[in-house]
């Protein structure tokens, strides 16, 4: 903003009036500036979790809203709190939910490992490429991330279908004589997750590997280590923070993924995000969906806190 414009703003009547009133109430401008983001995140980020927790203790009913109230006024005027852990007991009793959690973890772990195996060489290569090639390669890694996530998953539907690009190609060159079934399998879900989250693996690895001190590598080479030995004894251990950060950035969104299993997975591909979605949109059982979300929250909060502590330790060094 230009200086005259700022002057006009601070001298305008509404501004001065607000400043007067706010000042009279003993609120400083500083408090006001803090209050705006604080209130927004409190109301629209933190409070929803309490609502979620409260509804996970309710019972589903056919009404608007489709759950029982938390308290009820009895005929004698006393308030009775109605809350039960029935939904959580239900989650424990039905094998479907435990299986969905375990299967989500399995799918997320496998995808993260493959993303690391594909992403590490790419990050390593880009980090050691000379400018301006380095910037261009980096832009090429980021670019797909900016295009629609949904349409990138859709692209794989066209690739993996029975009459898809891969099958057509393999049939054409005679590598197979009947189409492979790839779409609607767990394999397709792995491919989808690795594909969509690969940039999240590469970027932290790249950031870490560019900071790698060249002197360490030279010292190892001077002491007679072969490039392979240098890589496994120097580069790999030093890039651990990048590996951890990249893996978390793939693992965390993968675990709650809904779109990829819904479009690429088969009917038996169990993932907790999908179970929650179906519980809400198909079964219309809001309380059970909330209970699933609460358990899922604990499942993702643990790795996040681990990531945070690793990062804090690195910053302290």
């Amino acid at each position: 903003m230009s200086a005259p414009a700022t002057n006009a703003l601070t001298r305008s009547l509404p501004w001065r009036l607000t400043a007067r009133v706010v000042g009279a109430m003993g609120i400083t401008g500083r408090t006001l500036v803090i209050a705006v983001p604080m209130l927004w995140f409190l109301v629209f980020f933190l409070v929803p979790f309490f609502v979620l927790g409260r509804i996970s203790l309710a019972e589903a009913i056919i009404a608007r809203p489709p759950y029982t109230p938390l308290w009820e006024r009895m005929p004698d005027g006393t308030l009775t709190i109605i809350a039960s852990l029935e939904n959580f007991r239900f989650l424990l009793a039905d094998r479907l939910y435990a299986n969905a959690y375990l299967s989500s973890i399995r799918i997320a772990v496998v995808s993260t490992v493959f993303a690391l195996l594909i992403g590490y060489p790419m990050a390593y290569f880009i980090a050691r490429a000379p400018e301006p090639r380095r910037s261009i390669l980096l832009l090429l890694v980021i670019l797909p991330f900016w295009t629609s996530f949904l349409l990138r998953v859709y692209a794989w539907m066209g690739f993996l279908r029975r009459e898809g690009v891969i099958n057509n190609f393999l049939l054409h060159i005679g590598a197979i004589d009947r189409p492979l079934i790839m779409l609607q399998t767990d394999f397709a879900v792995y491919v989808g997750i690795v594909y969509t989250y690969l940039p999240f693996m590469i970027l932290p690895l790249y950031a870490n590997l560019t900071k790698l001190d060249q002197a360490h590598l030279e010292a190892a080479a001077d002491l007679g280590a072969s490039p392979m030995v240098t890589f496994f004894t120097v580069t790999l251990p030093l890039s651990m923070p990048g590996i951890v950060a990249g893996s978390m950035l793939v693992f965390i969104p993968a675990i709650g993924e809904y779109v990829i299993p819904a479009l690429l997975g088969g009917p038996d591909t169990l993932m907790i995000g999908r179970v929650l979605w179906d519980e809400f949109f198909q079964a219309r059982d809001w309380p059970v969906a909330s209970a699933v979300a609460i358990v899922m929250l604990f499942l993702v909060v643990a790795p996040i806190m681990w990531l945070q502590s690793v990062q804090n330790r690195r910053e302290l060094k």
Partner: peptide
Amino acid sequence: MATAPLVMPEVITGLSLLL
């Protein structure tokens, strides 16, 4: 609160905001 939304699974954010 300003960093947690980055890692929150979308299904949880969506459901809790709707509620």
